[in-house]
């Protein structure tokens, strides 16, 4: 075959510009769509929610009572429930405070000692008082407090 001939230079330029523009346009739209798709998995931000933790009837005034709370965790399309222990402390009236049972040192679960009226960690001997302040031992911070509220005899905590 002989050397192929071209259309007139002016026309050639217009056609070339058309091809480039359309190709770039389609490519850019695809890139934008797929980029958004890959970078932003979920529009709904994972958030804490109020979780049912027990009823007032289960509590004794001013004694921390351990409750295992089942916390729903939504991880994309995967739903699971984490079990988390909290101590509920009822003031005898309408007020309930909640403390996380997770030791601030290395994360063991603390236990309430009714005689000494203190929380004791079984792992490295951390001790906290009834409001979660460190009394002795390695824990660097007090027990984390958890927002709690009473609604119609039910205790809800925010986890």
């Amino acid at each position: 075959m002989s050397q192929p001939v071209d259309p007139a230079p002016g026309r050639r330029q217009i056609l070339a510009a058309f091809v480039t523009a359309v190709t770039a346009g389609i490519g850019a739209s695809l890139a934008a769509i797929l980029g958004a798709f890959a970078l932003k998995p979920s529009r709904a931000a994972a958030s804490e929610c109020w979780v049912h933790a027990g009823t007032l009837d289960d509590l004794t005034a001013n004694v921390p009572v351990p409750h295992v709370v089942s916390v729903p965790r939504v991880d994309g399309w995967y739903r699971e429930r984490a079990r988390q222990m909290v101590f509920l402390v009822w003031d005898g009236n309408q007020q309930v405070t909640a403390l996380s049972a997770t030791c601030s040192h290395l994360g063991c679960q603390v236990a309430w000692n009714g005689e000494t009226k203190q929380f004791k960690c079984p792992c490295h001997g951390g001790v906290y008082d009834v409001s979660g302040r460190v009394v002795s031992g390695p824990p660097p911070r007090p027990l984390e407090s958890v927002a709690a509220q009473v609604r119609g005899g039910n205790v809800l905590v925010k986890l």
């Binding site: 192929p4 001939v5 071209d6 259309p7 190709t23």
Partner: peptide, 22 residues
């Protein structure tokens, strides 16, 4: 007639149809 190169004449036809389909 003589053969002509794919770019840009035929390429422009391809692109136009691709644009339509897309």
């Amino acid at each position: 007639g003589d053969p002509y190169p794919f770019f840009p004449r035929q390429a422009a036809r391809d692109t136009a149809v691709i644009l339509l389909v897309t």
